[in-house]
Amino acid sequence: MAEIIKLSVFRFDPEKDDKPFMQTYEVPLLKSGMKLLDALNYIKWEIDGTLTYRRSCGEGVCGSDGLNINGVNGLACITPIEGLKQPIHVRPLPSMHVIRDLVVDMDHFFDQYRQIKPWLQSESPMPEHERLQSPEDRERLDGSYECILCGCCTTSCPSWWWNGDRFLGPAALLQANRWIVDSRDEATGERLDQLEDAFRLYRCHQIMNCMEACPKELNPTAAIGHIRRKLLSRKS
């Protein structure tokens, strides 16, 4: 008899339900190293086809399945079942508008990403060859370009819960810093102007939930600190 895993999963069908509820499921432990996504897939494919969630790559690089797992944000596809306290409480990312079950509306999150103008800006004519960049300058992008835009950090941030309409949140600010740091980008001044705002940047109170939540082990708090220092240094 296989070992049984107990899950308690957030359910909400906007066509039928007045309010959300938690539904319990029991799933066999299929293999050692089994991930939470395997359990959700088991429920969907073997028990209850109505359970709704997003997933794509299944290996932690596409950022589809950011969820709140036992109170901590993470990706279902790389979170091992072993080591999770049971029943495993699976909820949608906190503070987000729920479309259905575990699926949340990501529009505002991606809109904030667009607001930081996340593309290379340069007035210099394109060189015939690549823009040169030393390995050291390239290394300074490590820790930010790897972001998969899953939303785990931003939706874990209490400052964003309160002021998410105006505070850009950790994910967008991590990317803002990525372009400030990039030696090829020539719009640092405009980028800093854009961020010098009581809400957009300065609502960060270094609670550091974002760093804890990031499944790629990136550190948005440090990036925000870097932007603050940049802003300070151009004043002096």
Partner: peptide, 19 residues
Amino acid sequence: VRELEHQGVTFSRLENGTI
């Protein structure tokens, strides 16, 4: 590929700064 670099792809670099 050079165009991708111009668009911002974070290619790893050689000592002389090329891809």
